[in-house]
Amino acid sequence: MTYEIIDTTLLDPVARPLLDALEIEYATRYREFRPDSSASASEEMARYPAELFAPPEGAFIVVVLDGKTVGGGAFKRYDATTAELKRIWTHASQRRQGLARRVVQELEARALRQGYRRVYLTTGFKQPEATELYLNAGYEPLFDRSIAPEVHFRLPFGKDLLEPGRTDSLEDLIQHEPLGVR
Rank of each mutant, 00 (worst) to 15 (best):
residue 158 G to R: 05
residue 174 I to A: 13
residue 165 G to Q: 09
residue 168 D to R: 11
residue 155 L to T: 02
residue 162 L to R: 11
residue 162 L to F: 03
residue 161 L to Y: 05
residue 158 G to T: 06
residue 169 S to E: 04
residue 160 D to V: 01
residue 176 H to T: 13
residue 168 D to N: 13
residue 180 G to T: 08
residue 171 E to N: 14
residue 161 L to T: 09
residue 157 F to K: 02
residue 164 P to S: 10
residue 160 D to G: 03
residue 174 I to M: 12
residue 163 E to F: 10
residue 181 V to P: 00
residue 153 F to E: 01
residue 172 D to Q: 13
residue 172 D to K: 14
residue 164 P to L: 07
residue 181 V to I: 14
residue 167 T to Q: 10
residue 178 P to V: 12
residue 179 L to R: 09
residue 181 V to S: 11
residue 174 I to H: 14
residue 179 L to F: 07
residue 155 L to V: 06
residue 154 R to Q: 11
residue 180 G to E: 05
residue 156 P to G: 04
residue 165 G to D: 08
residue 167 T to R: 14
residue 174 I to W: 15
residue 177 E to N: 11
residue 180 G to D: 01
residue 160 D to A: 02
residue 160 D to N: 14
residue 162 L to Y: 01
residue 180 G to W: 06
residue 171 E to T: 15
residue 170 L to R: 05
residue 160 D to C: 08
residue 154 R to T: 11
residue 176 H to Q: 12
residue 177 E to V: 09
residue 173 L to Q: 05
residue 175 Q to A: 15
residue 164 P to I: 09
residue 177 E to P: 00
residue 164 P to N: 11
residue 152 H to Y: 06
residue 163 E to D: 12
residue 178 P to F: 07
residue 157 F to N: 00
residue 170 L to W: 04
residue 153 F to A: 04
residue 163 E to H: 15
residue 167 T to F: 00
residue 173 L to E: 05
residue 155 L to H: 03
residue 169 S to H: 04
residue 157 F to S: 01
residue 167 T to M: 00
residue 157 F to P: 00
residue 153 F to I: 02
residue 171 E to S: 15
residue 178 P to E: 01
residue 163 E to S: 13
residue 159 K to Y: 03
residue 172 D to I: 12
residue 170 L to G: 06
residue 174 I to Q: 11
residue 156 P to L: 05
residue 174 I to E: 06
residue 153 F to S: 00
residue 179 L to P: 00
residue 154 R to K: 05
residue 165 G to S: 09
residue 153 F to R: 01
residue 164 P to M: 09
residue 166 R to S: 14
residue 165 G to A: 08
residue 154 R to D: 07
residue 180 G to A: 12
residue 155 L to R: 02
residue 180 G to K: 08
residue 173 L to W: 07
residue 171 E to V: 15
residue 159 K to M: 05
residue 162 L to H: 06
residue 162 L to I: 12
residue 181 V to M: 12
residue 172 D to T: 15
residue 176 H to L: 13
residue 165 G to H: 09
residue 153 F to V: 07
residue 162 L to G: 12
residue 158 G to S: 08
residue 167 T to H: 04
residue 155 L to Y: 04
residue 170 L to Q: 04
residue 173 L to R: 05
residue 162 L to N: 10
